[in-house]
């Protein structure tokens, strides 16, 4: 029986008078990659913060499987230039044993960068370092917020492949946030298209053909691109 690692039911959230999320359901299970996709401002990051317990929902419920270990990769890492911080020390913020930190760094493919200052890393190296820190938690659930941000196209593909491999090896569930479905098509099992509420939900192929998705993003395969205003009955 594949019990959900994390389950959100009927989650709504307002910031002031502005409704960011309306009645959202979401479930992540072991060995599956679920991608949250939607235009910027659609509530992806808010939903992830609620799932992580960083933010309280106005209504709805959040259930985590008992003893759940979460590895989180935030969207941004801005280290103040006044803080001298090398990659190894960054990892040791989460795990005191340097041996384990080196193993995690090797797992994400950048074992040589142990002594490199965090401020001197490229976009892709930063993302791999963040992923290594998430792995140190030996996570049941990996939550990755825009994991390929600031990474060139070749690097993006490699990073998605790495995430897929890690899922296989660790048997963890993955909740991924992205703004571009076509990039994550191959790397995901299931997609939720979000725009304040769940517009559509299914396999990447199903979602890419769903009228609600096409209305939001346009059809990439069509001979011309066109955008509709977002509307629902």
């Amino acid at each position: 029986m594949n019990q959900p690692l994390i389950r959100l039911r009927g989650v709504s959230k307002h910031f002031g008078a502005h409704q960011v999320l309306r009645d959202v359901d979401l479930e992540v299970t072991r060995n599956r990659i679920l991608t949250l996709i939607g235009p910027s401002g659609c509530g992806k990051t808010t939903l992830v913060r609620i799932a992580l317990g960083l933010l309280d929902a106005d209504s709805g419920s959040l259930t985590r499987s008992p003893g759940l270990r979460v590895g989180y990769m935030p969207q941004k890492l801005v280290v103040d230039p006044t803080l001298p911080l090398a990659v190894g020390r960054f990892l040791r913020l989460a795990e005191r044993d340097p041996g384990k930190c080196r193993v995690a760094l090797a797992e994400t493919g950048i074992p040589a960068l142990w002594d490199r200052p965090v401020s001197a890393l490229s976009g892709g190296e930063t993302q791999r370092m963040l992923l290594a820190r998430a792995l140190l938690r030996r996570p049941d659930l990996l939550v990755l917020d825009e994991p390929v941000q600031g990474v060139d196209v070749v690097g993006q593909e490699a990073l998605y492949k790495l995430i897929g491999d890690l899922r296989q090896r660790l048997g963890c569930g993955v909740l991924l946030v992205s703004h571009d479905l076509h990039l994550v098509m191959a790397a995901t099992d299931e997609v939720i298209c979000l725009n304040q509420h769940v517009c559509c939900h299914g396999t990447p192929l199903q979602v890419s053909r769903d009228p609600a998705f096409v209305a939001l993003f346009g059809r990439r395969t069509a001979p011309y691109e066109h955008d509709h205003d977002h509307s629902h009955p």
Binding site: L52, L54, Y72, P74, L83, L85, L93, A94, R96, R137
Partner: peptide, 17 residues
């Protein structure tokens, strides 16, 4: 100390941990 440096570097990450 370790936790203080951790919240300085990335507060959300430290909270999740």
């Amino acid at each position: 100390w370790n936790a203080l440096v951790a919240i300085t570097v990335q507060e959300d990450l430290a909270r999740v941990e």
